[in-house]
């Protein structure tokens, strides 16, 4: 893009930071981390260069999907305080540029993954991008209050892709890692949605607290956190991990349920500061980092990752 083709809607010329912001760097950090953990915890060996390439491709794919998401949702983002500062609502770049950037990142990441790492890992990466950008963002997010449950699937792919990059096939263990993030996402995001509820209502997104009401959302947060407790223990119970992961999962998931309880059994009053909801949201991010760290530590110290 050259200066002479700057769009009318653009007030400020696009900087590289605007493109970087399109990739949702904060979401990407979680994606890179869980993808790397899947790769490190998988049985077998991968050349470090190819391992790095795999994680890079997961990150680029997630960035591409994030850019496509912002391209599609620019109008919605403009209406919400949390997202109004994103580059498209700010008019820093043209929507078509965001779209092209997203497509280029997506296609590039899948192509490099396929050539350097393996076809199955590339296929799952492609599926995850399609799932997030099309199935979630375009199709289901504006249509159903179950959007977050469905969207959780997209965020759950990275450890599966990292694992498959090493092993070349899908076994029960990486599917369980997928299931952990899948069950983690709804309570994580609904806790957030409870304290930014008004924004979603304004933008017309059928977020659970807006559609089903707060009480129902709070109940569902607890239900999911209990299911998460069970699912997070399964890798240990089937013998795929050792006791380090097992103990960490019991402790962390137990805390998760403990943080969900006050959220589940209370009603927010006028001008509520939503402290329990914010605490749960904050802990949920820490939870995922800690649980996957335990998985990798367990693999290297106890060396039981070969069973899967």
């Amino acid at each position: 893009m050259t200066g002479s083709t700057l769009p009318i809607e653009s007030q400020v010329p696009a900087e590289w930071r605007d493109y970087f912001a399109l990739t949702k760097p904060r979401v990407m950090s979680l994606v890179v981390f869980t993808g790397l953990c899947g790769l490190l915890a998988a049985p077998g060996h991968i050349n470090p260069v190819l391992g790095f390439t795999a994680v890079l491709c997961i990150a680029l794919g997630a960035g591409g999907a994030g850019a496509l998401n912002q391209w599609w949702e620019a109008d919605i983002d403009a209406q919400m305080k949390r997202t109004a500062k994103r580059p498209l609502p700010q008019g820093h770049l043209r929507r078509t540029d965001a779209r092209d950037f997203g497509v280029a990142l997506s296609v590039g990441s899948v192509a490099i993954m396929g050539l350097a790492v393996g076809l199955l890992a590339a296929a799952i990466l492609a599926l995850s991008i399609f799932y997030y950008a099309v199935v979630y963002t375009i199709w289901l997010k504006p249509r159903t209050p179950q959007n977050i449950v469905i969207g959780g699937g997209a965020g759950a792919f990275p450890p599966l892709i990292g694992w498959v990059a090493v092993t070349g096939d899908i076994t029960l263990m990486p599917v369980l890692l997928f299931a952990v993030i899948f069950m983690w996402t709804p309570p994580h995001f609904w806790a957030l949605a409870l304290f930014v509820k008004t924004d979603y209502a304004k933008a017309g997104i059928p977020m659970m607290p807006v559609v089903a009401g707060e009480a129902s959302t709070r109940r569902q947060i607890l239900i999911y956190s209990i299911v998460l407790f069970v699912v997070s223990l399964l890798p240990w119970l089937i013998g795929g991990t050792g006791a380090i992961y097992g103990v960490a999962a019991v402790a962390l998931s137990g805390l998760f349920v403990a943080f969900s309880l006050p959220v589940a059994f209370r009603r927010a009053g006028e001008d509520d500061r939503m402290a329990p909801e914010k605490r749960l949201f904050g802990f949920s991010v820490l939870y995922l980092f800690a649980l996957f760290t335990a998985l990798v530590v367990d693999h290297y110290l106890l060396g039981q990752g070969a069973l899967a």
Binding site: M1, T2, G3, L6, V12, P13, A14, E15, W16, R17, Y19, N47, V49, L50, T53, L56, I112, L115, A116
Partner: peptide, 30 residues
């Protein structure tokens, strides 16, 4: 401002391209 932004984009793109060259070289050797 426009020139500064363009220069920043060009440098970022150059770094990305150099990074890809190094990556492809390393993958090929491996």
């Amino acid at each position: 401002q426009l020139k500064r932004a363009r220069r920043g984009r060009n440098i970022a793109l150059a770094l990305v391209l150099v990074g890809l060259v190094v990556l492809f070289y390393a993958i090929s050797i491996v």
